[in-house]
Simulated scan of single mutants.
Amino acid sequence: MNIITKLLVALVLCLVTSNMNAQDSIQLEQKQMKIEQLNKTKETITQEEKGALKKEVEAINSQLEKGEITSSEAEVLKQEAAQKRALNIENRLAIIDNQIALLERNGNLEGTYTPGNRFILEIGKNEDSDEFDRGSFYVGEREDYRLKPRKYDRRTTSDLVFAIGFNNAIIEGESLNDSPYKLGGSGFVELGWAWKTRVFKNSNAMRLKYGFSFQWNKLDIKGNRILSENNEGQVVLEEFPLNVRKSKFRTTNIVFPVHFEFGPSRKIEREDYFRYSTFHKFKFGFGGYGGFNISSIQKVKYYDENDKKKKDKYKDYNTNNFVYGLSAYMGFGNIGIYAKYDLSPIFNDQVIDQNNISLGLRFDLD
Rank of each mutant, 00 (worst) to 15 (best):
G124Y: 07
S158D: 01
R150D: 10
R85M: 06
R85E: 07
I96A: 02
I100W: 00
F188H: 02
F188L: 09
V139T: 05
E75V: 09
L183Y: 09
R142L: 08
I164H: 06
A101V: 05
I69P: 02
N106Q: 10
R150G: 01
E122T: 10
G187Q: 07
L109Q: 03
N108V: 13
D144L: 05
R134D: 15
G165L: 04
D144V: 15
I170R: 13
I95Q: 08
V189K: 01
L121V: 11
A94D: 05
L87K: 09
E127S: 10
F162I: 10
N126P: 08
S175L: 04
Q79L: 07
Y145E: 05
D178M: 07
A94N: 08
R134I: 15
G111Y: 02
G135C: 06
G187P: 03
G111I: 03
A163H: 02
N168S: 10
T156R: 12
N126Y: 13
E80T: 04
Y145M: 05
R85K: 12
Y138R: 13
R105M: 03
S179C: 05
R85P: 01
R134Q: 15
G116F: 00
I89C: 00
L183T: 07
N177F: 12
Y113M: 15
Y138A: 12
K125D: 15
R134A: 15
N126G: 15
I96Q: 03
I171M: 10
Y152T: 11
N117K: 15
L176V: 08
G185Q: 02
R134L: 15
G185H: 02
D97S: 13
E143T: 11
E141H: 14
S158Y: 06
A101P: 03
S158M: 06
R146Q: 13
E172W: 06
L109N: 09
A86P: 01
I120G: 04
R154Y: 08
R92H: 00
A74D: 04
K84R: 06
G173A: 07
I100G: 01
Y113Q: 14
Y181G: 01
E122S: 14
N106H: 13
S136P: 05
A74T: 01
R155E: 04
L176Y: 05
L109F: 01
E104I: 09
Y152M: 03
P149M: 08
R146W: 14
V76T: 13
D159V: 03
